[in-house]
Write a protein that binds this DNA or RNA. Sequence first.
RNA 1: GUGGCUAUAGCUCAGUUGGUUAGAGCACUGGUUUGUGGUACCAGGGGUCGCCGGUUCAAAUCCGGUUAGCCACCCCA
Length: 440
Amino acid sequence: MFKTLPGFRDFYPEDCALRNHLFQIWRKTAQSFSFKEYDGPILESLDLFKQKSGDEIVSQLFAFEDQGGRAVALRPEMTPSLARMIGARANALKRPIKWFTIEENFRYERKQKGRLRSFYQFNADIFGEPGAGADAEIIAVLIHSLCVMGLNSDDFVIRVSDRHLWVLYLQSLGLEEEAVSAVLGLVDKMERMPREVLLEKLVPYFNDASEDFLVKVETLTQIRELADLNSFFKAHVAAGELADAVNERLDAWDALIQRLDGMGMKSFIRIDLGIVRGLAYYTGFVFEAFDIQGEHRAIAGGGRYDHLVKKLGGPDMPAVGFAMGDVVIKDLLEEKGLLPTYIQAPDVYVVLGGDEVLSAALQQIQALRLAGYSVDYPIKRVGFGKQFKAANESGARWAAVFGEEEVSQGQVKLKNLASGEETEIPLNRLVEALRELDES
RNA sequence: GUGGCUAUAGCUCAGUUGGUUAGAGCACUGGUUUGUGGUACCAGGGGUCGCCGGUUCAAAUCCGGUUAGCCACCCCA
């Protein structure tokens, strides 16, 4: 027997039902926020990904040469394709551009808990709006989708940070561009690194002031209140150009929190400058969703990336977005018992009395199907008892009993499988009767 | 890419110091049941014990290799 390739999954009907459940929530959420759905190709030119992420990315891609000698790769993420699509029509698209997609990605890396080689992602992005209102809207989409899944503020938290604020702060300490990104990289790893090791790695940038810097960073990353954030920067950044820029950021923070508070989502937000995200291209707010217990890797992540569209050959285009994978969220929902069962069930299961009723039954089955109902019935002859058992196990709400007695009187018996209640209905009124019963 | 642990039926697992034809529960199929479901009872199908090699009269069991999975590290768009 062949097996699935490492990191790839088979989706048996119950897995597929689950996947559809997730996809439906994602799609409905995006539509509630009036995002438009788009899609792009699974296979792209290898250069597209190199340009965004550098040559090192190639070892983590499913990359190969096609029959025409082109260097191509399965997409590891949607953003480059999206940036290309947006760039190509930037002038013709009404702002703000609110788009989402649900797509499969492929990454050639070692399989791990919460991480596979093939996975699905929900992406939502807003282009053309630089203000914090767009960031708030994106974060709201993320929170809303998690809430619709049945999670609440006891289950997850959105840790929000600010790349731009970090850069300004490090610049105010006199660091040059290269040193800024190196130090940010260290801040990103702070949680997972012993303090002494971290201190050692800071020395090339701060020399004797390393300990002092680390203490400040520890203070900063522990700040959870807007007011504390304000006073920290008032105390640590001297007045001047940089301080003006910092104040602008603090205003943006204020706007962000106010908007989320307005939507009743403030309790999901945790100010946490410890989040940096590895990506160099983030330019403003960055955020990640985590389960409260911290047992899983990030559920979702995103942020503002105002320069990426231009970098990939488009016009200047501010952008903010996030992505949520299907793997971690599925694990979390499973753990919380929030995954529904019986998602692929017919509406009606037809119970057949014998050969004499078959044609009358098939006629009604077809009428029900035309009316939009999902209908199943036993394909081979089976005893009544077995049929009710099958009806029950199918998950159907209704059993439609086409017995010889009923059919000979032009009737059919509808049985509510949950309550056991039975009603006789004229054959030619079956569709209407079902509709009425479902509504009542 | 590095290290540790694991691999027996679709699933969860048992399998004695190496010893006949490798077992259980769940699931699946059929029956008890030609007009009423979740229960019960009976029967059945399903495994080259991950794969390759070695030791042995004899290997699921011992040894080596390999592949896959889990955990940690690295990475994480």
